[in-house]
């Protein structure tokens, strides 16, 4: 009875005082912390070293490019790349993974910078399929407002574009010699406007440029999009009159899926 009693005393007080003290310490620490903030303690560049490859097979799809690969304009937010992944997943038993490295608004120059970063190259190493959209921003935004397009400026941009695409493909090949690269061509979002003739001409020229560069590399496929939206832009383009809408993305995805599944059966194992 007596030792029992003492045990109860002791245990009740130990629990009570211990919880009280722990929380008291915590609250004092936090008040000190919050009232006298310390300067950021972790601005060191140590983090730069950490991006080392961890597993050899991370992801089969690694996509690059601009807002088209991001899926801008698709109400569901998927874009062609997610639709493609879903279609592919249906015909594949294993997990189809996707790393989407695209940056909305990126020009070929931006992509060129991104591709040189160690993080990107690490991810590229493990890719099996590399879809890519680039150039739209170079042509339609980089060359200024469309109404007063200066052919000379456009031509200058085209040369940069050519050089960048070449660099990008070379870089990808350096990291990964096996993956198939699918590069979407450009389309003319202004096909139904009065300046259609001129813009059509530009788009055709740029696509030709891209194809010329691509021809230098193995396992790079050019996927035209020009024909997809040319006849009925309203139906396939988003209200911004620049990006595809969901229907448009679906068409792009269909094309890509068809190409991938037709390939030597590696995706249907």
């Amino acid at each position: 009875m007596h030792s029992n009693h003492r045990m109860r005393w002791i245990s009740i007080f130990v629990v009570a005082i211990a919880s009280f003290s722990i929380l008291l310490i915590g609250s004092i620490m936090s008040l000190i912390e919050l009232f006298r903030p310390q300067a950021s303690n972790l601005q060191t560049p140590a983090s730069q070293k950490t991006a080392s490859p961890t597993s050899p097979t991370i992801g089969r799809i690694v996509s690059l490019g601009d807002s088209l690969t991001r899926g801008i304009g698709d109400d569901s937010g998927k874009g062609y790349i997610q639709l493609f992944r879903e279609q592919l997943q249906k015909s594949s038993k294993s997990e189809v993974s996707l790393i989407n490295l695209s940056v909305s608004g990126a020009t070929s120059t931006d992509l060129r910078k991104q591709i040189s970063q160690p993080e990107t190259s690490n991810l590229l190493k493990s890719a099996e399929i590399i879809p890519l959209t680039i150039g739209g921003n170079d042509l339609f935004r980089g060359s200024g407002r469309l109404e007063n397009t200066d052919p000379a400026t456009v031509e200058k941009a085209r040369l940069t574009y050519q050089e960048n695409v070449d660099f990008i493909l070379k870089e990808i090949r350096k990291q990964n010699s096996k993956a198939t690269i699918f590069m979407f061509g450009l389309y003319n979002p202004f096909g139904d406007l009065s300046e259609a003739k001129q813009t059509n001409e530009f788009v055709a020229k740029w696509n030709e440029t891209a194809q010329q560069v691509i021809a230098k590399y193995d396992r790079v496929v050019f996927i035209p999009t020009y024909d997809l939206f040319q006849l009925d832009p309203k139906r396939y383009l988003f209200t911004d009159h620049f990006h595809p809408n969901q229907n448009g993305y679906q068409r792009m995805a269909n094309r890509l899926t068809q190409l991938v599944i037709d390939q030597e059966g590696m995706e249907t194992k």
Binding site: S55, Q82, L98, Q117, L123
Partner: peptide, 23 residues
């Protein structure tokens, strides 16, 4: 996100953010 490999997701997030930094 479409993958169960958290490392992929994380790398993707890091790169997304690095991309944002360049803006």
């Amino acid at each position: 996100i479409g993958t169960s490999d958290w490392k992929v997701v994380l790398k993707q997030q890091i790169i997304d953010q690095q991309n944002r930094l360049t803006s």
